[in-house]
Amino acid sequence: MKLLITGGTGYIGSHTVVELLTLGHEVVIVDNLSNSSPLVLDRVEQITGQRPTFIEADICDRIALEAIFFEHSFDAVVHFAGLKAVGESNEIPLSYYHNNVSGSVTLFEVMAKFQVKRLVFSSSATVYGESNVSPLHEQMPISATNPYGRTKLMIEEILFDLAKSDEAWSIISLRYFNPIGAHKTGLIGENPNGIPNNLLPYVAQVAVGRLPQLQVFGDDYNTPDGTGVRDYIHVVDLAIGHVKALESLADIKGCQPINLGTGNGTSVLDIVKGFEQVSGKAVPYQVVPRREGDLATVYANAELAERLLGWQAKFSLTDMLADTWRWQSENPDGY
Protein backbone atom coordinates (compact mmCIF):
# COMPACT_ATOMS: atom_id res chain seq x y z
CA MET A 1 0.00 0.00 0.00
CA LYS A 2 1.01 3.61 -0.48
CA LEU A 3 0.31 5.37 2.81
CA LEU A 4 0.26 8.93 4.11
CA ILE A 5 1.41 9.08 7.74
CA THR A 6 0.69 12.42 9.42
CA GLY A 7 2.91 13.04 12.44
CA GLY A 8 5.14 10.22 11.25
CA THR A 9 8.34 11.49 12.90
CA GLY A 10 6.73 11.45 16.36
CA TYR A 11 7.05 8.72 18.99
CA ILE A 12 4.29 6.34 17.90
CA GLY A 13 4.38 7.46 14.28
CA SER A 14 8.07 6.66 13.82
CA HIS A 15 7.70 3.16 15.28
CA THR A 16 4.72 2.55 13.00
CA VAL A 17 6.69 3.75 9.97
CA VAL A 18 9.42 1.21 10.82
CA GLU A 19 6.88 -1.64 10.89
CA LEU A 20 5.27 -0.50 7.62
CA LEU A 21 8.56 -0.12 5.75
CA THR A 22 9.72 -3.52 7.01
CA LEU A 23 6.60 -5.06 5.47
CA GLY A 24 7.24 -3.39 2.12
CA HIS A 25 4.68 -0.60 2.23
CA GLU A 26 5.43 2.77 0.61
CA VAL A 27 5.35 5.57 3.18
CA VAL A 28 5.03 9.34 2.83
CA ILE A 29 5.42 11.24 6.12
CA VAL A 30 3.90 14.69 6.64
CA ASP A 31 5.01 16.40 9.85
CA ASN A 32 5.57 20.01 10.93
CA LEU A 33 8.35 18.89 13.35
CA SER A 34 6.80 20.88 16.21
CA ASN A 35 7.30 17.97 18.60
CA SER A 36 9.83 15.78 16.80
CA SER A 37 13.24 15.77 15.14
CA PRO A 38 14.23 15.29 11.50
CA LEU A 39 17.00 13.00 12.84
CA VAL A 40 14.26 10.39 13.27
CA LEU A 41 14.41 9.89 9.49
CA ASP A 42 18.09 8.92 9.72
CA ARG A 43 17.33 6.47 12.52
CA VAL A 44 14.42 4.90 10.63
CA GLU A 45 16.72 4.46 7.63
CA GLN A 46 19.35 2.82 9.88
CA ILE A 47 16.79 0.32 11.16
CA THR A 48 15.00 -0.50 7.90
CA GLY A 49 17.54 0.30 5.18
CA GLN A 50 14.90 2.53 3.61
CA ARG A 51 14.28 6.26 3.88
CA PRO A 52 10.62 7.24 3.83
CA THR A 53 9.54 10.21 1.74
CA PHE A 54 9.31 13.19 4.10
CA ILE A 55 7.41 16.44 3.55
CA GLU A 56 7.56 19.18 6.17
CA ALA A 57 4.04 20.57 6.26
CA ASP A 58 1.20 21.30 8.68
CA ILE A 59 -2.15 19.53 8.48
CA CYS A 60 -3.82 22.92 8.93
CA ASP A 61 -2.31 24.04 5.60
CA ARG A 62 -4.93 23.03 3.03
CA ILE A 63 -2.88 24.20 0.04
CA ALA A 64 0.11 22.09 1.12
CA LEU A 65 -2.08 19.04 1.76
CA GLU A 66 -3.82 19.33 -1.61
CA ALA A 67 -0.45 19.54 -3.36
CA ILE A 68 0.68 16.37 -1.56
CA PHE A 69 -2.49 14.46 -2.48
CA PHE A 70 -2.23 15.73 -6.06
CA GLU A 71 1.33 14.37 -6.34
CA HIS A 72 0.75 11.02 -4.57
CA SER A 73 -2.02 8.44 -4.98
CA PHE A 74 -2.60 7.14 -1.46
CA ASP A 75 -4.41 3.93 -0.55
CA ALA A 76 -4.99 5.03 3.06
CA VAL A 77 -4.00 7.56 5.72
CA VAL A 78 -2.75 7.01 9.28
CA HIS A 79 -3.42 10.21 11.22
CA PHE A 80 -1.11 10.75 14.21
CA ALA A 81 -0.48 14.50 13.91
CA GLY A 82 -1.66 16.51 16.91
CA LEU A 83 -0.68 18.30 20.09
CA LYS A 84 -0.81 15.81 22.97
CA ALA A 85 0.06 17.22 26.43
CA VAL A 86 -2.87 17.21 28.85
CA GLY A 87 -1.44 19.91 31.13
CA GLU A 88 -0.51 22.19 28.24
CA SER A 89 -3.98 21.76 26.74
CA ASN A 90 -5.45 23.39 29.85
CA GLU A 91 -3.15 26.39 29.39
CA ILE A 92 -3.55 26.90 25.61
CA PRO A 93 -6.87 25.24 24.71
CA LEU A 94 -7.41 27.25 21.52
CA SER A 95 -4.13 25.96 20.09
CA TYR A 96 -5.30 22.41 20.76
CA TYR A 97 -8.70 22.93 19.18
CA HIS A 98 -7.18 24.70 16.17
CA ASN A 99 -4.37 22.23 15.57
CA ASN A 100 -6.09 18.96 16.46
CA VAL A 101 -9.72 19.53 15.47
CA SER A 102 -9.46 22.12 12.67
CA GLY A 103 -6.37 20.42 11.27
CA SER A 104 -8.14 17.06 11.22
CA VAL A 105 -11.19 18.52 9.47
CA THR A 106 -8.92 20.03 6.83
CA LEU A 107 -7.21 16.65 6.35
CA PHE A 108 -10.53 14.81 6.05
CA GLU A 109 -11.84 17.36 3.53
CA VAL A 110 -8.75 16.92 1.38
CA MET A 111 -9.02 13.13 1.67
CA ALA A 112 -12.64 13.33 0.49
CA LYS A 113 -11.73 15.62 -2.40
CA PHE A 114 -9.13 13.12 -3.64
CA GLN A 115 -11.34 10.08 -2.93
CA VAL A 116 -9.03 8.61 -0.28
CA LYS A 117 -11.55 7.25 2.22
CA ARG A 118 -9.60 4.73 4.27
CA LEU A 119 -8.30 6.07 7.57
CA VAL A 120 -6.69 4.86 10.79
CA PHE A 121 -7.01 7.57 13.46
CA SER A 122 -4.82 7.94 16.52
CA SER A 123 -7.33 8.34 19.36
CA SER A 124 -6.91 7.86 23.10
CA ALA A 125 -8.37 6.13 26.14
CA THR A 126 -8.94 9.64 27.52
CA VAL A 127 -12.26 9.56 25.63
CA TYR A 128 -13.65 7.23 28.33
CA GLY A 129 -13.73 10.13 30.78
CA GLU A 130 -14.10 9.74 34.54
CA SER A 131 -17.32 7.80 35.07
CA ASN A 132 -16.60 4.44 33.40
CA VAL A 133 -15.16 1.57 35.44
CA SER A 134 -12.23 -0.52 34.15
CA PRO A 135 -11.85 -2.69 32.17
CA LEU A 136 -12.93 -0.12 29.61
CA HIS A 137 -14.67 -1.34 26.45
CA GLU A 138 -15.71 0.32 23.21
CA GLN A 139 -19.47 0.30 23.90
CA MET A 140 -19.10 2.57 26.95
CA PRO A 141 -20.26 6.21 26.73
CA ILE A 142 -17.47 8.62 25.96
CA SER A 143 -16.64 11.99 27.54
CA ALA A 144 -13.55 14.03 28.37
CA THR A 145 -12.07 15.98 31.26
CA ASN A 146 -9.53 18.27 29.55
CA PRO A 147 -9.08 20.07 26.21
CA TYR A 148 -6.69 17.42 24.84
CA GLY A 149 -9.19 14.65 25.57
CA ARG A 150 -12.02 16.73 24.12
CA THR A 151 -10.12 17.16 20.85
CA LYS A 152 -9.87 13.37 20.51
CA LEU A 153 -13.55 13.05 21.44
CA MET A 154 -14.60 15.71 18.93
CA ILE A 155 -12.56 14.13 16.13
CA GLU A 156 -14.13 10.74 16.85
CA GLU A 157 -17.60 12.31 16.72
CA ILE A 158 -16.70 13.99 13.42
CA LEU A 159 -15.57 10.64 12.03
CA PHE A 160 -18.78 8.91 13.15
CA ASP A 161 -20.80 11.63 11.38
CA LEU A 162 -18.59 11.48 8.28
CA ALA A 163 -18.92 7.71 7.98
CA LYS A 164 -22.68 7.94 8.47
CA SER A 165 -22.95 10.53 5.70
CA ASP A 166 -20.94 8.52 3.15
CA GLU A 167 -20.72 4.74 3.26
CA ALA A 168 -17.55 4.76 1.14
CA TRP A 169 -15.52 5.61 4.26
CA SER A 170 -13.69 2.85 6.18
CA ILE A 171 -12.32 4.22 9.45
CA ILE A 172 -10.71 2.63 12.50
CA SER A 173 -10.22 4.84 15.53
CA LEU A 174 -7.56 3.29 17.77
CA ARG A 175 -7.95 4.19 21.44
CA TYR A 176 -4.49 3.86 23.01
CA PHE A 177 -3.89 3.29 26.65
CA ASN A 178 -0.35 4.15 27.93
CA PRO A 179 2.40 3.66 25.31
CA ILE A 180 5.91 3.11 26.67
CA GLY A 181 9.10 1.40 25.52
CA ALA A 182 11.23 1.95 22.44
CA HIS A 183 12.57 0.08 19.44
CA LYS A 184 14.87 -2.80 20.46
CA THR A 185 17.78 -1.18 18.59
CA GLY A 186 17.72 1.82 20.94
CA LEU A 187 17.71 4.09 17.88
CA ILE A 188 14.20 5.56 18.24
CA GLY A 189 12.14 6.24 21.36
CA GLU A 190 10.10 8.81 23.23
CA ASN A 191 11.79 12.22 23.19
CA PRO A 192 9.55 14.80 24.92
CA ASN A 193 10.22 18.52 24.73
CA GLY A 194 11.14 19.95 28.15
CA ILE A 195 9.90 18.27 31.34
CA PRO A 196 8.15 15.02 30.41
CA ASN A 197 4.38 14.82 30.87
CA ASN A 198 4.27 11.02 30.95
CA LEU A 199 5.53 8.72 33.69
CA LEU A 200 8.09 6.57 31.86
CA PRO A 201 10.15 9.34 30.20
CA TYR A 202 10.23 11.08 33.60
CA VAL A 203 11.39 7.91 35.38
CA ALA A 204 14.02 7.31 32.67
CA GLN A 205 15.35 10.86 32.89
CA VAL A 206 15.65 10.57 36.67
CA ALA A 207 17.54 7.28 36.25
CA VAL A 208 19.92 8.78 33.68
CA GLY A 209 20.54 11.86 35.87
CA ARG A 210 18.76 14.53 33.84
CA LEU A 211 16.11 15.11 36.53
CA PRO A 212 16.63 14.94 40.33
CA GLN A 213 13.57 12.97 41.39
CA LEU A 214 10.16 11.72 40.34
CA GLN A 215 6.94 13.25 41.60
CA VAL A 216 4.32 10.62 42.44
CA PHE A 217 0.89 12.25 42.34
CA GLY A 218 -0.95 10.66 45.27
CA ASP A 219 -0.43 7.44 47.21
CA ASP A 220 -3.90 7.24 48.77
CA TYR A 221 -5.90 5.77 45.88
CA ASN A 222 -7.93 2.60 46.33
CA THR A 223 -5.25 0.48 44.65
CA PRO A 224 -2.88 -2.22 45.99
CA ASP A 225 -0.10 0.27 46.87
CA GLY A 226 -2.12 3.50 46.85
CA THR A 227 -0.66 4.83 43.57
CA GLY A 228 -2.46 5.13 40.25
CA VAL A 229 -2.82 2.01 38.09
CA ARG A 230 -2.58 2.22 34.29
CA ASP A 231 -2.46 -0.10 31.27
CA TYR A 232 1.06 0.23 29.83
CA ILE A 233 1.59 -1.05 26.28
CA HIS A 234 4.83 -1.40 24.32
CA VAL A 235 5.04 1.14 21.51
CA VAL A 236 6.02 -1.63 19.07
CA ASP A 237 2.87 -3.58 19.99
CA LEU A 238 0.98 -0.35 19.34
CA ALA A 239 2.72 0.11 15.97
CA ILE A 240 1.81 -3.44 14.96
CA GLY A 241 -1.78 -2.63 15.96
CA HIS A 242 -1.77 0.14 13.32
CA VAL A 243 -0.48 -2.28 10.70
CA LYS A 244 -3.24 -4.74 11.58
CA ALA A 245 -5.81 -1.93 11.43
CA LEU A 246 -4.64 -0.91 7.95
CA GLU A 247 -4.86 -4.53 6.80
CA SER A 248 -8.41 -4.75 8.22
CA LEU A 249 -9.82 -1.53 6.73
CA ALA A 250 -11.24 -3.38 3.72
CA ASP A 251 -13.53 -5.30 6.08
CA ILE A 252 -14.68 -2.22 8.02
CA LYS A 253 -17.65 -0.11 7.02
CA GLY A 254 -18.25 3.11 8.88
CA CYS A 255 -16.15 4.19 11.87
CA GLN A 256 -15.04 1.49 14.31
CA PRO A 257 -13.35 2.41 17.62
CA ILE A 258 -10.93 -0.25 18.92
CA ASN A 259 -8.92 -0.30 22.16
CA LEU A 260 -5.20 -1.04 22.07
CA GLY A 261 -4.03 -2.11 25.52
CA THR A 262 -2.78 -5.16 27.38
CA GLY A 263 -5.80 -5.58 29.65
CA ASN A 264 -3.50 -5.43 32.69
CA GLY A 265 -2.96 -2.63 35.19
CA THR A 266 0.39 -1.63 36.71
CA SER A 267 0.89 0.90 39.51
CA VAL A 268 3.28 3.84 39.51
CA LEU A 269 5.41 2.28 42.24
CA ASP A 270 5.53 -1.05 40.38
CA ILE A 271 6.90 0.87 37.40
CA VAL A 272 9.52 2.58 39.59
CA LYS A 273 10.65 -0.71 41.18
CA GLY A 274 10.72 -2.49 37.83
CA PHE A 275 12.74 0.30 36.24
CA GLU A 276 15.26 0.23 39.07
CA GLN A 277 15.71 -3.49 38.47
CA VAL A 278 16.28 -3.31 34.69
CA SER A 279 18.49 -0.19 34.86
CA GLY A 280 20.43 -0.85 38.05
CA LYS A 281 19.83 2.82 38.88
CA ALA A 282 17.98 4.36 41.81
CA VAL A 283 14.83 6.32 41.00
CA PRO A 284 14.23 8.61 43.99
CA TYR A 285 10.67 9.90 44.26
CA GLN A 286 8.55 12.26 46.32
CA VAL A 287 4.84 11.78 46.92
CA VAL A 288 2.88 14.96 46.19
CA PRO A 289 -0.88 15.65 46.18
CA ARG A 290 -3.11 14.07 43.57
CA ARG A 291 -3.67 15.87 40.30
CA GLU A 292 -7.20 17.02 39.57
CA GLY A 293 -8.95 14.60 37.23
CA ASP A 294 -6.56 11.68 37.74
CA LEU A 295 -8.32 8.33 38.18
CA ALA A 296 -7.29 5.48 40.46
CA THR A 297 -7.41 2.67 37.92
CA VAL A 298 -7.56 2.65 34.10
CA TYR A 299 -7.06 -0.44 31.97
CA ALA A 300 -8.44 -1.85 28.74
CA ASN A 301 -10.70 -4.60 27.62
CA ALA A 302 -8.79 -5.47 24.43
CA GLU A 303 -10.98 -8.33 23.19
CA LEU A 304 -12.34 -6.40 20.19
CA ALA A 305 -8.82 -5.82 18.82
CA GLU A 306 -8.18 -9.55 18.95
CA ARG A 307 -11.51 -10.34 17.30
CA LEU A 308 -11.49 -7.71 14.53
CA LEU A 309 -7.76 -7.20 13.92
CA GLY A 310 -6.23 -10.48 15.06
CA TRP A 311 -4.04 -8.39 17.38
CA GLN A 312 -2.81 -8.99 20.91
CA ALA A 313 -0.10 -7.24 22.91
CA LYS A 314 2.98 -9.50 23.06
CA PHE A 315 5.65 -7.61 25.00
CA SER A 316 6.00 -7.99 28.77
CA LEU A 317 6.36 -5.13 31.23
CA THR A 318 10.03 -6.07 31.66
CA ASP A 319 10.50 -5.75 27.88
CA MET A 320 8.89 -2.31 27.95
CA LEU A 321 11.07 -1.07 30.80
CA ALA A 322 14.30 -2.57 29.43
CA ASP A 323 13.71 -1.06 25.98
CA THR A 324 12.93 2.33 27.56
CA TRP A 325 16.20 2.19 29.49
CA ARG A 326 18.21 1.15 26.42
CA TRP A 327 16.83 4.14 24.48
CA GLN A 328 17.36 6.60 27.34
CA SER A 329 20.84 5.41 28.35
CA GLU A 330 22.10 5.39 24.74
CA ASN A 331 20.42 8.74 23.95
CA PRO A 332 20.60 10.64 27.30
CA ASP A 333 19.81 13.96 25.62
CA GLY A 334 17.33 12.54 23.09
CA TYR A 335 17.89 12.98 19.36
Rank of each mutant, 00 (worst) to 15 (best):
81 A>G: 03
55 I>D: 00
268 V>M: 04
3 L>H: 01
298 V>C: 00
123 S>R: 09
221 Y>A: 13
235 V>K: 06
330 E>Q: 13
28 V>L: 06
278 V>C: 11
325 W>A: 12
300 A>F: 06
212 P>N: 10
282 A>S: 15
121 F>T: 11
227 T>H: 10
276 E>R: 08
214 L>Y: 10
281 K>A: 15
293 G>H: 07
80 F>Q: 03
220 D>A: 14
57 A>Y: 02
8 G>P: 04
318 T>P: 00
171 I>Y: 00
32 N>S: 12
175 R>N: 14
300 A>M: 08
246 L>I: 11
17 V>C: 06
100 N>F: 05
116 V>E: 05
181 G>T: 07
282 A>Y: 13
36 S>C: 08
299 Y>V: 06
290 R>S: 12
252 I>G: 05
267 S>Y: 07
241 G>P: 09
108 F>Q: 01
21 L>R: 11
30 V>E: 09
22 T>K: 15
159 L>Q: 14
322 A>M: 07
94 L>P: 00
218 G>Q: 10
195 I>R: 12
237 D>Q: 03
293 G>L: 09
266 T>S: 15
242 H>V: 09
232 Y>R: 10
4 L>K: 04
24 G>C: 09
156 E>A: 01
68 I>R: 03
94 L>D: 14
231 D>P: 15
36 S>E: 07
30 V>A: 14
255 C>Q: 06
60 C>V: 13
211 L>C: 08
224 P>Y: 07
273 K>Q: 09
123 S>A: 02
215 Q>P: 05
255 C>R: 02
121 F>G: 07
107 L>Q: 08
108 F>H: 11
212 P>L: 02
90 N>C: 15
113 K>I: 02
132 N>S: 12
21 L>P: 04
2 K>W: 02
219 D>M: 09
119 L>K: 09
60 C>A: 13
303 E>P: 00
325 W>S: 02
53 T>Y: 00
142 I>S: 10
115 Q>A: 08
277 Q>C: 05
38 P>V: 15
290 R>C: 08
217 F>V: 05
175 R>Y: 05
40 V>E: 08
63 I>N: 12
150 R>S: 12
306 E>M: 06
43 R>C: 10
74 F>K: 04
274 G>S: 12
71 E>Y: 01
4 L>E: 01
260 L>T: 08
